[in-house]
């Protein structure tokens, strides 16, 4: 009997702890005390004056609900980074900021390249690309942080002041089925750029230091990379063919869906063949990095292990991307019309 009582008390203690740890620190003690009183009262009623059994305790806790749910009710369930109030505005701002950063930096870097005097143009270009990428990530992070803070502190943005414009209404589905030309064109431009980089400047796929001496640690095993180039190019060419289909058919239909599906399957197989096996990756990447720039290995994150897992990660991302692209094309094809 005594052990039963102890078990019940232990269960209650664990429940209170599970709720309290999900609450803001300043409220924890008070809410815990109040809930303890509540559980006590509920138990007294359940046991009708007698000694509550472990089953009674279980029943009462079940009635109160999952600790996470109860804690969420106390917090008022403001559980998202950026909620629906801000999301639309967040996306708009994000687009503008990213476009501005990319455009501005591209212009600046082009001018820099033309002005020259910085040695190897290829090196400069590689540097420029990595600058651009890190700038975009920074912009993304900052915009997100600002909006997350606004969400948290409930700042008000007056989006209501924005005049509603009927011409902003989305197009009706018949037109929506159309593929805007810009989409395949942009796809082709980027693919061409990728072909140029992969064939002409594989050196940019790595980490460079431009100190007194130039150090370079490649991401890929360069010999394997070169032997795999035909496969990589085949993936790119398939990608261009896919965009050409979109340009030619001009709208989502079952024919396009079939073509895209076939191309995606082949190029996924090729991508996995090239990038999902460890051979193409520079096995000594982490150790080489350390040799150039000695840094302390983080204790809780096994870099070497995770670098070894990179082929798996790449495979997951490739499969995921392929599935999403194929499914959306098929779904749009089905929705927007058969034939023609």
């Amino acid at each position: 009997m005594d052990s039963n009582k102890k078990y019940g008390a232990d269960l209650i203690e664990r429940y209170l702890y599970a709720v309290a740890k999900r609450l803001p620190k300043e409220q924890r003690a008070d809410i815990e005390k109040e809930l303890a009183g509540l559980i006590d009262d509920m138990l007294a009623e359940k046991a009708a004056g007698g000694e509550p059994s472990p089953e009674d305790v279980r029943a009462v806790l079940l009635e109160l609900g999952k600790p996470a749910d109860l804690a969420a009710k106390y917090r008022g369930s403001k559980n998202c980074l950026i909620g629906p109030d801000y999301y639309g505005f967040y996306i708009t701002v994000l687009k503008i900021v990213l476009a501005a950063v990319a455009g501005g930096l591209a212009i600046a870097l082009t001018i820099g390249a033309i002005a020259g005097g910085r040695g190897n143009l290829l090196e400069y270009f590689g540097n420029a690309v990595s600058n651009l990428v890190s700038a975009l990530f920074q912009a993304f992070a900052w915009v997100t942080v600002v909006f997350a803070l606004m969400q948290r502190y409930n700042a008000k943005i007056d989006e209501k002041g924005k005049q509603w414009n009927p011409s902003d209404l989305p197009e009706v589905p018949a037109k929506k089925a159309r593929i805007p030309k810009s989409e395949p064109v942009a796809g082709i431009v980027f693919t061409v750029l990728a072909i140029v980089l992969f064939n002409g400047a594989p050196e940019i796929f790595g980490i460079h230091w431009f100190g007194e001496t130039h150090a370079f640690v490649p991401i890929f095993d360069m010999d394997v990379f070169r032997s795999m180039l035909p496969f990589i190019n085949a993936v790119f060419v398939l990608g261009i063919v896919k965009e050409l289909f979109k340009l030619a058919i001009e709208k989502y239909n079952l024919k396009l869906a079939a073509a895209v599906t076939a191309i995606n399957i082949v190029s996924l197989a090729l991508t996995l063949h090239v990038f999902a096996s460890p051979a193409i990756w520079n096995a000594d990447f982490i150790t080489q990095l350390q040799a150039v720039q000695s840094f302390a290995m983080p204790a809780d994150f096994d870099l070497v292990y995770h670098w070894g897992r990179v082929p798996h990660y790449v495979a997951v991302v490739a499969v995921f991307g392929c599935v999403v692209d194929t499914m959306t094309t098929i779904a749009k094809g089905i929705r927007y019309g058969r034939g023609r």
């Binding site: 009635e63 109160l64 106390y74 008022g76």
Partner: peptide, 12 residues
């Protein structure tokens, strides 16, 4: 009203 709803409501 379920206690799990009432108690957080009182706080709010």
């Amino acid at each position: 009203i379920e206690p799990g709803t009432l108690y957080p409501l009182l706080r709010r």
